[in-house]
Structure formats: C-alpha cells, structure tokens
Design a protein around this nucleic acid. Structure first.
Lengths: 203, 203, 203, 203
DNA sequence: TATGAATGAGTTTTCATTCAT
DNA sequence: AATGAATGAAAACTCATTCAT
C-alpha cells in the first residue's frame, strides 16, 4: 500500500488548491486585490510552488477560467439535453435559468474573469460557454425556423449569444432587488425565442 | 493682436491634449498598460502638468468617460428626436444605428472604459448613455405597449438596456467581418421592439 | 503726491505678506503641510513672486526665524531692563515669564522652526534668543555670584540657557492642563537662580 | 553541520542590517535626506526587502527608536540600581553620567529621532527613557523631599525630566570643546537635585 | 519538489524651482 | 515686477518573478 499518491494526482491537488485559493482571493478582495503572493498564502503554498504549477499570472487566470467554464458547460449540457424533451419555450427557459444559476454560483470569479479580459464586450470572457450556447441556438433554429438562410442564422446566433449571455450576467450579478428573478428569466427566454425564430423583420 | 490665446483656451488645450493622449495609450496598450507617466509622455507633457489638470488617475478616467459619454449622448439625443417622426421600427433602427456608429468612433476608449469598471456586466460603464437609452425605451413602451403594468415595464426596460447596449458594443467593437453590420442592426432593432412590446409571454 | 510708495517699502510689504502667510500655513497645516506653492496662494501672490523676494525655501524659513526672533528678543530686552530694578528672584521670574508668554504667542511658528532645525537639541533653534538670554545670565552671575571663576561661569551659562529655553518651550507648547503655568514658571525661575548662583556643588 | 543559519537568525540579520543602514544614512545625510530607497541601497538590499521586514517608513523609524531606547533604558536601569547604594548626589550623578554616555554612543540616531518627532520640545522623542527617568525622579523625591505635596511633585518631575534630558542631549551632542564634560555633568546633577528637593521657593 | 527571501522595475503622486509671457 | 504654467527629480510603496537552499 503506497503512502503517497501518484505524482499526477498530487499535482492535480496542488493545482486545484491554488485555483480554489485564487477564487477565494477574488471573492474577498476583487481582481484588483489579487496578487500571486496573496494567492499562494491563501492556498497555504509557497509562491515558488505556484510558479511550478502555473507558467504565469496569465496562465493562472486561464486555468481558472477553464475551470469555471467547465462547470458551467457541464450544467448547460445537462440542461440542453433535458430541454429537447420539453415544449420550445419551456426548454429554452430551462437552459436560461440553468445558466443564471450557474453564474450566480460562480459570481465573484466570473466578475473577475470579466474584468481580466481586455476586451470591451465581455460576451467571450467565457468562450466555451458561448460555444455551447451557440450550439444550442443553432439546434433550436434548425428545428423551429428551418427556412432561414445560413448567413441569417449566423447573424442571429451571433447576436443571440451576446444578448443571452449578457442578460444572464446582468441578472445573475447585478439584478436590483425590486426586480423578480423569475420574471427576468421569462423575459430573456421570450427575447431569445423571438430573436431566433421571428420572420425577417426587415423583409 | 495678441500672440497668445487666453489662458482658459490654453488650459482647455492641455486638458484635451492629455485626454487625447490617454485615449491613444489606451488604444495602443490597453487599460492595463496605462500609467500616468506614459500618458504624460504621450502627450508630450510632464507628469506634473498632468496633475495640474487632473486631480488623479481616477479623475483623468472620469473626464475621459465624460468626454465620450457627452458625444454619444448628444448623437443619441438627436437620433431620438428624429425617431419620433418615423415609423416605430424605423425610429428605433435609427437610434440603434446611431449608437453603433458612435461606439465605433470611440472604439478603443470605450473598450478601456469598460475594462476600468470593476463590474461584471458592463452595461453601465457609460451610465449617461444607459440613462438616455432608458428614457427612450420608456417613451417607446408608453406609446406602443401602454397596457403593460409598471413593474413589467421596469423589468423590460432593465433588460432592454443591457441587451441593446451590449449588442451594440459587440457590433461596434467585435463584429466578425463575415457578418453584415446593417443586418445586425436590423436584428437588434427587431429584438428591442419585440422585447419592449410583445404581450406578456407567460400570461 | 506719489500714487505709489517707494520701491523699498512695497518690497517690505511683499516680504511681510509672504512671511505672514508662511506663519499662517504653518499654524494651519504644520511644517509637513508647508509648501512654497501653498504659501504663495495663502499670501495671494504668485510663486514667482515668492522666489523674487526669497532665495529659497530655506531662505524663507530663515527670514521667518529672524522675524520671530526679533519680536521675542525685543520683549526679552524690555523684560531684562525691568528686571534689574527688582529683587533677584522677581527679576528672573519676570524674564522667564515674558519668554513663556512670547513663545505662547508664536506657538505654531516656533514649533515649525524647531522641526526645521536639523539638530537634535533645539536650544539653538532661536539663536538670537539664546544669545540674549546668555547675556542676561552673565549679568546675573556677575552680580550675584561674582566669586565664580570664568570657566565655571561659561559652563553654568551654557547649561542655564539650554535648560531655561527648553523648559520655557515645554511650558509654552506642551504643558498638560493639570499643571499650573505660574507654578511652573516659579520652578524654572528657582532652578535658574539656583543653577547660576549655588556654590560649586562638587567643591 | 548546517551551512545555513536558521531562518529567524537570518531574518534578524536583515532587520539589523537595515536598521544599521538607517542609522548610517541618518548620520550622513540627516533625517531630511533619509529615504527608503537610500536606506535599502546603503544596506545593500533591495527596496522590496526593506518592505518585507518593515511595514512602513514609520515602522522602520519606530524600530530604530525602540532599538536605541532599549539600550539606553537598560543602561539607565543599571545605573539607577547602582545609584540607590550611594550618597544622594553621587547616585544622581551616576545616572546623569550614564545617560550622557548612552546618548553620546547613539548620537546621530538620537538626533534623527528628535527631528522625526513633530513636536517642538523633544523631551519625549524617547518616551521610554523619559518614563524611566521620571520613575527615578519620583523615587528620589519620595526619599529626599517627602514633605512636598502631590501636585508640587508632579510639576517638579515634569520640569526635571525635560531639563535633565535636554541638558544631557546638549552635553552629549553639542558640547563645545572648551567646556569640560565632567563639569557639565556635575552641574546638571546639582541642578536636578536642587530642582527636586529645594523647599518651595515661592512659599 | 517545495520553499520563501530577494529582487527591482514600475506605479502614483508631490513639490521646489524656473522662465516665457 | 509679477505671473503661474510647466517641469522633472524624487518619494513611498507594490508585486510578478527568480533562484539558492
């Protein structure tokens, strides 16, 4: 019976520990208050170790992004599977609602990720999430508005992604108390469905 | 005939020069690469001068934001005035299109402004713009969907703002070449109109 | 009748104005809060002018010191003249009391002067005052302890100066409320008289 | 046999090195010429390191003060213990002499410490020393002038402290060559004894 | 592998001083 | 003479990154 686990496992532990610490520091002191030294301290690990497991401050953020993304994508995938068995509106609503929940859960980290992205529009702060959503949108269009030409679909999906992700972020991270979360989710759902399926408004 | 312009004019020049330099640095090296020294150098001015004209790094950003905001709001206001004389869809489209154009014009600065805001969703990086848009949305609802209850209006406007601003940002700053700008503007317009006027989807 | 006063007079006015402003700034914001720009502003004068009338920050302080010194020395001289007509103890007490009063009057400026002096012991922050006191001490010794040898007198005067000036500063600037000013002045007087006249303690 | 000393020892070395460098810079360029960068350079250490070992510029000065204070207080305590076994005058003289010696040893640092204190009278630049002296003065009064009322004792001790400390500083740091150190110590001793024990001069 | 002391370039900000007008 | 905009050296402090142990 080995007293030590295989190297890869321990390495995974360290990475996880450091990523978790990063998320904590982010939650407690914001992106501006993040420093590699602080992360290492929070993880109960030396800075040196942090640099053994991550190239770089950038690399660290990249991994954290990946980690969050993976969870959200997993949730989203599940929701998408469940969605196909429901009525169109209910299905979309389920996906939107799942996304909002996932974003709420990772609130501070997501915020930090957004701040870290040096781009104006933050839709692609979570590129994988966006990809997953895109897939869903395409499926939805194929099923409920099959008559749309390919480039029209591209344009609509492009917008729908940004709109949905941004709306969900707003709802998850900034919703004023007097607005009902469920109602907002309803509205986003309606918007998304309309945006994807409405006949060409300019036609 | 005086060889020197009045003090106030020169002072305005300096402020402008520094703000312009800030925008340039922002465009070239991003918000992370911005420093008071760099701005001063770019403006061909001493750091000391920068601090004569601006309280603070914060103050500098605030002024820059104001500068951009003012232009955009001015354009927007004009567009809103013109909009009331048109058909609903055309009016909205005009407003959206104007917003996109204004954002294109100030691209890099807007990006930097967005990055500077430590919030996840960047809808309110340009609060005045958002306010102006909100006003427009409320007017539109009052005119075309007067039957909606007050809190429903609140929720729809809240979402519409985020959605529109975000969509316009995406279009202005990140649009992939293969997507047609005008088509995207059409879509956003459609989305906005639908979002604001569609009968209660859950009802 | 000339509308303008002679140059020298106006120059004196400016100097005075600036020195007064310096004292004010000192009183309001302490030595650390003093800056040439601030002084100029307070005087309602440009920095340029300040540098026309004073070489230097140092020069400015030097002049301020001189100004305070002169007032204190004037008061002290008067007191000394009055002192010779009194009983020894009363005379000394009058001088000490006058010194304390003068220091109280110029409190903040004196403090700043002390802080500005790069020497540990502050006895000679006000060299002229010290000189004046020294003269008085020597007269007093000559009259009341004529038997002391010259070098003994030197030593006693040297100490008496420091002791007296320091004690008066303490009394004027730092006296805790529960200690009676008059009583402290009595004690200093006693100390001074004793220090100057007591027979050689080691002898 | 370990080639490296334990961490704590090395850490102590660094602190010491930096404090020593601080004292050197102080001695060479005065308090005004002190800067964290300069200290680090003098210590042959990076600024970063300085900030690893000291919170702050303030913290650095505080530690330096503590360091000096501790030595002086230690010497003083020893002297006080020895003093009780001697004749009154001899005992006091021993204490005074010890104080002067200690101040001579730490000359430049003490000067800087005095300059750092933003107060006019510098008696309490070394609060612990003053405290220690105060204790001694009270003991002395209790033993040799027990008839004095409490508030009179307060006033006398208050003055005695300032006077003694200031006189010792003068002797240690500024004594002109032609005055004999021992003679001055005698005089201060006499003054101190007289000041503490003389019957009420105003009575 | 892990550690964490050490580094030093870089940041924001202040202020004495100059000089063109 | 007077002005005050402009200067730029210098200060305190931070933090990503390295490397000897």
């Amino acid at each position: 019976m080995p007293r030590t686990r295989p190297v890869q496992a321990r390495s995974r532990d360290m990475k996880d520990r450091i990523l978790t610490a990063t998320a904590q520091v982010l939650a407690e002191r914001g992106y501006a208050g993040l420093s590699t030294n602080r992360v290492a301290a929070q993880a109960g690990v030396s800075v040196g170790s942090l640099y053994r497991y991550f190239e770089d401050r950038t690399d660290l953020m990249e991994h954290l992004r990946r980690r969050v993304t993976e969870t959200v994508v997993r949730d989203l995938t599940e929701a998408m599977v469940a969605a196909v068995r429901r009525e169109p509106f209910d299905g979309v609503r389920h996906v939107v609602s799942t996304l909002v929940d996932a974003l709420v859960e990772h609130g501070p980290v997501v915020k930090a990720l957004l701040d870290e992205v040096p781009l104006g529009s933050h839709a692609n702060a979570l590129p994988a999430v966006e990809g997953q959503l895109g897939q869903f949108a395409r499926m939805f269009v194929a099923q409920h508005a099959p008559q749309l030409p390919a480039d029209e679909v591209d344009a609509r999906v492009y917008l729908a992604l940004g709109v949905t992700l941004n709306a969900c972020l707003r709802i998850a991270l900034e919703r004023p108390d007097h607005l009902d979360l469920d109602r907002l989710v309803d509205l986003v759902t309606g918007l998304l469905v309309a945006g994807l399926t409405l006949p060409d408004p300019s036609g």
